[in-house]
Every structure is written in structure tokens, then in C-alpha cells.
Simulated scan of single mutants.
Amino acid sequence: MTPATLRARLLAWYDAQARDLAWRVGPADGQAGVRADPYRVWLSEVMLQQTTVPHATPYFLKFTARWPTVCDLAAEDDGEVMAAWAGLGYYARARNLLACARAVAKDHGGVFPDTEEGLRALPGLGLYTAAAVAAIAFDRPANVVDGNVERVMARLYAVETPLPDGKPELKAHALNLVRDDRPGDWAQALMDLGATICRPKSPLCDRCPIAEACAGLATGAPETYPRKTKKAERPHRHGVAYVLTRGDEVGLVRRPPKGLLGGMLALPTSDWRAAPWSDAQARAAAPAALDWRDLGEVEHVFTHFSLTLRVFRAEGDAAGVIWSPRRDLDGLPSVFLKAAKAGLTKLI
């Protein structure tokens, strides 16, 4: 199958099967001249990094209702944006989001640059996001390669080099299919194919519009692509979370601006380390000398390590805490919300 035939088949499939996404201008509207809003494209791409479409969509709708333009977002307080981001994880993305929004508002009059080069110059905008915004919002012929596209390329060409070493090869294959014709639709067609047909497990090869060209399918085991290098075992850490209550309020702290969960409101916590904390150590690290009760443990998994948090609870006061009503704790990062729920639902 020639590249021209492959492109024609996949674009025809996309015209008929494109996903209806909150941030997307559909193929019919796109061909009628409707352009996607660069702000909405950029925001969705940042949210979708390491996050699924169903999980990201309500956040996208909440953000665009509250901050309908990039200038609205740029003018907001850091803490408000970080709280609205809570639950999406990878909080460095939220800090980069604000930095980029403020650069667009301040240095570009609230208008996103319309080239990959200009987009790459914005803070927090990596190669992938710049290519995605350039293609989808500005119809530039950019090479947009996310995990879905990597999987499609690995199977289409039966690439044997395992990830991550195989990424340049996969990107080169994808680049060979980029054309000036409908580059935004092409990028989204590849993404949709990977998300709905060329799935990580149990690919629906019988429904694939380009199955005839797929070298991975010809091997009889397309699901084994992309090849992957065995991951190192994820390290495990231990810590203590302190649920400090004062009537119907819970004491929170603001985490340092840099590092994991930087700038987020959180429960007071000990350091997170390889060795478990003894009772004496846990009480010594508490934010105040109170009658702390051990209420058990919660487990949480981050990208690079897993965590066991012992949950201690006490009634009283402590210096330097930020008091929050219990009903407002949903804005906490998921690890701390999990610990707070564990501490507040058990009797002491």
C-alpha cells in the first residue's frame, strides 16, 4: 500500500469515525473552514499527558467554563489553578500551564504563535505539544507523535527496536506520512486509530482501515508491538500523614513550590523514605505535640515510586497550618485526599 493510499483510507475512516471530543473541531467543520481554538487545543493536550480522555474531559470543561481564554487563566491566582487541577496528577503540568498562559498573555497579546518554532519558545511547551497545537489549531504539517501514534507506527512497520530506544525510529516512520494536506486531521486520525482500534491490548484489526498494510498484523501477533524493555522495579517509600482536626476543620499546609506536588495544599506529612516509621518517630515528626492516634495505612502509586502512608489523627491546634472545612477537601491531591478520608471516617 502506497503512503498516498494509506493516508486516503485513514482520513476517510476519520471522516466517518472521528471521536466527539469537547475540545475538537470535527472533520466536517474543519473542511468547511472552522478552526480549532489554539487555547482549547493546548489546554487539552496538556491535560491529556499521562491522563485518559474520560478523566481529563470534566477538568477541561471546568477550566474552560471558569477561564474561557488564555488571558483569563493567566490572570488567576496560582493556588486557585492548582486546586482546580487537583486529581489530574503530575502537578508540574499545572505550573507549566500557568507559566505558558502568562507568557502568551504578556508577550504575545493573548494570541498563541502559529508555528512550531514559535510555540516551542513558550515556557513549558515541549516538542510534542508544540507539534500538536501547530497541526490541530493552525493546520501546519507537523509530526505529532504521542503514545497512540507510536503504537500504530510500531505495528504498521513491525519495528523490533524496543521502547524507549525505538522512539526515534517510530518518529521517523510517522514523519514519512506527514503531508501539507489536512495535517490537523491526519494527526487526530492517527491518535483516534490508536485509541479506538489499534489498542494496547486486543487490537480490533478486523476494523482497521489500514490493516492490509500492517506488517505487525502479518506476523500474527500485532499486540506484541511496540516491543518494550523490561522496566526496573518501582521503589517503595514510607511516610506519615497527619489529619489534624479542629471541630469541622482540617489543618493543611502548602507544599514547597518545587518538587513533587509543588505548591499544592496538603496534609502535614513526614519525609518519605525507604524505611518504615516507628510509632516514636511518627509522633516526633508530627506538626504539634498532641494525642495522635494511629488509624492505619493507605497506599498510593506515583510514576516513579509507590508509597505507604501511615495515617495519624488528633484534635487540637498547631502553628503554621491552614484551616479548611472538611467539605472543601476534594481539591487535595489524590494521595492526601485518600489519607484524609481514611483519617476522618474512622472513630478515635
Rank of each mutant, 00 (worst) to 15 (best):
G30N: 12
Q31S: 14
Q31Y: 07
A32R: 15
A36T: 00
A36H: 08
D37M: 02
D37F: 10
P38R: 01
P38Y: 01
Y39K: 07
R40E: 15
V41L: 09
V41Y: 02
W42S: 09
W42L: 11
L43W: 06
L43V: 01
E45W: 12
E45Q: 14
M47N: 06
M47P: 00
M47L: 15
L48C: 13
L48T: 06
Q49N: 10
Q50F: 08
T51P: 05
H55V: 15
H55R: 15
H55F: 13
T57R: 15
P58K: 11
P58V: 01
Y59G: 02
K62H: 07
F63M: 01
F63C: 04
F63E: 06
T64S: 13
A65G: 14
R66Y: 07
W67G: 08
P68A: 10
P68F: 12
T69G: 05
D72P: 04
A74M: 13
A75R: 11
E76Y: 00
E76T: 15
D77M: 01
M82N: 04
A83N: 07
W85K: 03
A86P: 09
L88S: 00
L88A: 02
G89F: 09
Y90K: 06
Y90H: 09
A92I: 05
A92D: 08
A92W: 00
R93D: 09
A94C: 09
R95D: 13
R95L: 12
N96V: 10
N96W: 06
L98C: 02
C100G: 05
V104E: 02
V104I: 14
V104Y: 08
A105G: 04
A105M: 03
A105T: 12
A105L: 08
K106L: 09
K106H: 14
K106D: 15
K106W: 00
H108N: 14
H108P: 07
G109Y: 11
G109A: 13
G109N: 05
G110V: 11
G110L: 03
F112M: 10
E116N: 12
E117G: 13
G118H: 07
G118V: 10
R120Y: 01
A121G: 14
G124Q: 04
G124C: 13
L125C: 14
L125G: 02
G126V: 12
T129I: 15
A131T: 07
A131V: 02
V133F: 05
V133A: 12
I136C: 04
I136S: 05
A137D: 02
F138K: 03
